[in-house]
Nucleic acid binder design. Structure first.
Lengths: 249, 249
DNA sequence: CGACGTGTTGATCTCTCTCAATTAGAGTGG
DNA sequence: CCACTCTAATTGAGAGAGATCAACACGTCG
């Protein structure tokens, strides 16, 4: 885990260039500068936050992918949701929740580290930022809601189709050139299985079935949707609205 | 749906008497009074918020139980989480999330209704309250996380045991006399099935199995845990910490 | 008293899991 | 450059947890 002291200025944050994120006022940026401590670089497959850890710092994922998870004592693991650049990490732990989750990177990642009481400072100094934090937290919850619907009520085929579509949408919103060569897909089949509550073997068979049917292709850690309509029909996803602009940090 | 104009004063809010909730300053109470519009009384089984509804008001559940849910187009339903007195309703909708969830009451309920932009006012006027909202939202997400772990990775028996324990804990924290005659349990077996991603029939069989083994009893819409240790072992729940004091509104 | 919602139980059926083995690719050391 | 190792992906076969189908019991209610 490499730490950099020379800090990227928040105004020059690479994420800010993306149309996905909303603008901030000068005051807000100044406040961000004050609570930002440094950047951290971590390799892929690095356990950023351990399950049960209660003193984890607050991060923003600047580059790379990660996931939140919980496990049972015999090792069964459930991936709760996938984290992409722009996502917050550690809000729940900060809120002192007993049963916390772990966070592991899927790719090498760069993170922005905030000071201990950053959440409270944001709320106090810039209520608009506090509101953004609530927005982001509520939004993340709704991702978990959708995920729970999948795991609880969709068949294996439907779950896979849903996951592919949702990941594609989120990743495409961060990619300059969307439909060309697909989007990054750094998950192994074991990750997909753990996310969807399926066994590794069945995940593989279902994935292959959809691929042979020409619905998608995964190659070189990139995902290409070859028949979005068929996938959307399987996933029972109607409304296709693009993601709306969202707060950053 | 009955609406009352004569408003209960926030300082006299029945919930506030419970040790579970944290105190508020005079300023905070005054702000609450300003954004509170009225109380609403609804019967059991009332669809308070429809799935997909985007203009739902913001509520606090003052008395009674409810649940959040999502459905697929063919009717399969997933209950996302159970709402007890003190819970917020409608934060996600307020945050303009496309794929919203519905809310239905399990019992007759009394709700506190806030004005349209209450969330923003709370953040702006009383950052401490804004912080509380973030806290509550993050906390609710962690409940969904735990639920997702159950549905994704626990067996039917384990899921039932987990649900019984978690509901018991939450309900007991609101009941003056805990262990006596159990806690309210207004869920039908269909609700339990929809919450756990199981079929009604299998839910019934599993529930009966645990009951015959003497682990619990459900009678007259009340739940009694007769062997918490056995249930906790099944659920794979170690830490048994009581719920910590939480913000109200 | 019949209709309806909820709970209960038995009998199949099937989707998904578990067990086992094989292949392919990347990385390492000799 | 090649054996050796390790991880990820694949595929087949058999087993099983949970789904579906069907009946029936019981209490409430109009």
């Amino acid at each position: 885990m490499t730490q950099t002291k020379s800090t990227i200025d928040c105004a020059a944050c690479p994420l800010r260039a993306l149309p996905l994120f909303i603008a901030h006022s000068a005051d807000e940026l100044e406040m961000l500068r004050q609570i930002k401590r440094r950047e951290v670089f971590v390799p892929a497959d690095h356990e950023l936050i351990h399950e049960g850890q209660s003193d984890a710092p607050l991060y923003t994922l600047l580059a790379g992918w990660a996931f939140r998870f919980k496990t049972l004592s015999d090792g069964r693991r459930q991936i709760l949701n996938i984290l992409l650049p722009g996502d917050f990490i550690g809000v729940q732990q900060k809120m002192g929740d007993s049963a916390a989750h772990g966070v592991i990177t899927l790719t090498p990642a760069m993170l922005c580290v905030f000071e201990r009481d950053a959440l409270w400072v944001m709320h106090r100094e810039q209520p608009s930022m506090g509101f953004n934090v609530t927005w982001l937290t509520a939004h993340e919850e709704s991702l978990v809601d959708e995920h729970l619907l999948s795991v609880g009520r969709r068949s294996a085929e439907e779950r896979i189709a849903t996951l592919l579509i949702l990941i594609y949408k989120r990743a495409a919103a961060l990619e300059p050139d969307a439909g060309k060569s697909g989007v990054p897909f750094p998950l192994t089949q074991q990750h997909v299985a753990d996310a969807l509550g399926l066994s590794l073997v069945h995940t593989n068979k279902t994935l292959r079935k959809l691929e042979r049917r020409g619905l998608h292709k995964i190659e070189n850690a990139r995902l290409i949707l070859k028949d979005v309509n068929a996938l959307a029909r399987l996933a029972d996803i109607y409304g296709d609205g693009l993601p709306m602009p969202r707060p950053l940090v």
